[in-house]
Design a binder for these strands. Structure first.
Lengths: 346, 346
DNA sequence: CAGAGGAATGTCAGCGTTGTCAAGGATATC
DNA sequence: GATATCCTTGACAACGCTGACATTCCTCTG
């Protein structure tokens, strides 16, 4: 069997068939399909009827050869977290399909030296002709990539950008406000001794979460300093940070981790140390990723609308009437589950 | 800014440029690019030099319009597990890119009524012209889908098929043998009282794991029957099944769960019940997915080469010389971590 | 009511490849 | 040495659609 000639399925109708069938010119069919102005209602109706009857579907290859669009949106991926990535991907997919576009995936590896990275990008853009790219973190803040796309005149939308936010369009949530909300939750439960597990230093959103958390606690009147430890964004990082925190003898009653993975690690460290969550100590995360419901007790966290962010990013790319650059802020909300509770009575 | 005209990047060289540059005909360039026979070494060298110099890249749209290939491989997704999906996707992506193809993602929802599902498929195949599809479970065993693809004459490769294995090509591992290996591991540790958490009933691979596990134990001389409980493939399912098992008063010393997620749930149930893993009870999973290292203690499990399976599937699709139908078996191996240990002294 | 301007529709030449067919040259066969 | 056969190369017409431009038919304006 041969790849090339294997499609022996029913013959697809062409635009010519539609034109003949509805008694109008080829170009008029084209106009209807592309929603161009200056088409009478009568003609449109005729053509649409013919399209429906013949089950006509425009040929993407011919369209992109003749026109200048490819009807493909590229999703640029370089994120280690499968949960996050899949959610973004789902959102982008839905938006793209709703516009009759297709989703193309492209992975890049930004952990290589700059020149190699540039070579990757060049190859990618040369090969993968797309009408636009959705950039996921950490790519959203990769200046080399942004420069390259700008210079090539390729449209893009950034998900959760932190640096140079005026470049391209971006979809964000207010990390600081979200962290502040978590701070209030813990404060209201009665906690007064806190630790925070910082995310990766390169991750700007993580820094904003930290700042928002600490600011809010100060505003609420916290006296003790907040203990800070680097934990990264991984389970291993969380467990390590948790181990060393608990070994140090410091005993916060609540720990805020930079994301759900590290929070899960912290919880593991607590149970290793014989502390029960949430009775002895409260732990909370950020993202409401899938792992938040794959640990026991279920994790209190901040819901980030990741799928919606992907959807919004793709939609932005597909709206031709969009301004050059804009930052769209989406809503988060607190998800209180079982890993936070009032502190133990001293 | 307009999607259509935004690409003001450098002008791409066309095949015509290459032909002129190397002093040969258009068709000869085409022959070189497509690796067709009957091309002299001299001509090939000239053309290749010109291609390199002009940085020529064939235009995919023109190729698929003129020829009958699209240079796109579709990945059909309907799997709830992001870990699994991302791994498959990565493998498929790498294989596809190595052949200068592109990866298109398409989601379908097989949880809807049959007629609605058929409509989805029809729309998908009508719109998404691909040179072939990679099917992931549970789609690999969806007969409606297989019928549809066969009938449309579209090539596909199935990942982990269980039913009607002679249809299309398939990439599998030996689930029964893998489960048997796990059984031997536990037996060698000294366990004699087992429970097994069954996967979803519709999931054939899960059934094979169960059978392989029990068969092997019988072969080894197990006397007590293995306790069986349905847990599905989710964390919640695992925790529920674990709760009811432990509440029942039955006390196996080792629990084999159908996948890592349900194993994590079982571990949570154990710690809720005050049992320490692995000192009081051993727990093991299947897949070596990402969650196996996101629980404490790290999970003993079976490594399935999911990424390689995706890679193999796509490669199969891209080899034109492949027979109609073939089943390719890939290797698994045991990953012994911290969740299994000898049973407590009675 | 002539002329201008705009709305509605049509004609036609590509877009950048590949498939078909033909032609010329080299090699093999009797 | 003539004919048959294969190898190598090229000319040219699609592929299905859109962009530029032409044409017709209104409707408005003064």
């Amino acid at each position: 069997m041969n790849l090339a000639t294997s499609s022996t399925g029913p013959v697809r109708a062409t635009m010519d068939d539609v034109a003949r069938h509805s008694g109008v010119s080829l170009k008029s069919v084209s106009r209807v399909i592309n929603g161009e102005p200056h088409v009478s209602a009568t003609l449109r109706a005729k053509v649409e009827a013919a399209i429906a009857e013949l089950k006509y579907v425009p040929d993407a290859a011919a369209r992109s050869l003749a026109g200048s669009r490819t009807f493909i949106i590229g999703l640029l991926l370089d994120n280690p977290s499968p949960n996050y990535t899949m959610k973004v991907q789902k959102g982008v997919y839905d938006a793209v399909r709703a516009h009759q576009y297709h989703l193309r995936i492209d992975n890049v590896d930004s952990s290589v030296p700059d020149d190699e990275f540039s070579a990757q990008l060049e190859a990618l853009v040369r090969n993968s002709r797309c009408d636009g790219f959705v950039l996921t973190p950490p790519l959203s803040d990769n200046l080399l990539l942004l420069d390259f796309l700008d210079q090539s005149g390729i449209r893009y939308v950034r998900i959760a950008p932190a640096l140079e936010k005026s470049r391209g369009s971006g979809i964000v949530i207010d990390d600081a406000a979200a962290a502040a909300a978590m701070a209030r939750h813990l404060w209201d439960l009665g906690h007064r001794r806190y630790a925070i597990m910082r995310g990766p230093t390169a991750h700007m959103a993580a820094a904003r979460r930290r700042d928002g958390f600490i600011e809010e606690l100060k505003r609420l009147g916290l006296e003790h300093p907040v203990i800070e430890i680097d934990a990264g964004f991984s389970f291993e990082g969380g467990i390590r940070a948790g181990d060393s925190l608990l070994a140090s003898g410091l005993r916060p009653t609540a720990i805020f981790a930079g994301n759900d993975d590290s929070a899960a690690g912290v919880m593991a460290a607590c149970s290793k140390a014989g502390l029960k969550v949430p009775d002895d100590i409260s732990v909370c995360g950020f993202d409401d990723s899938w792992i938040a419901r794959s640990v026991w007790p279920y994790l209190t966290t901040v819901y980030q609308p990741i799928e919606e962010m992907g959807h919004a990013a793709a939609s932005l790319l597909l709206r031709r009437d969009e301004p050059e650059s804009a930052l769209h802020r989406l809503d988060f909300h607190l998800v209180v589950r079982d890993s936070t509770a009032p502190p133990p009575q001293a």
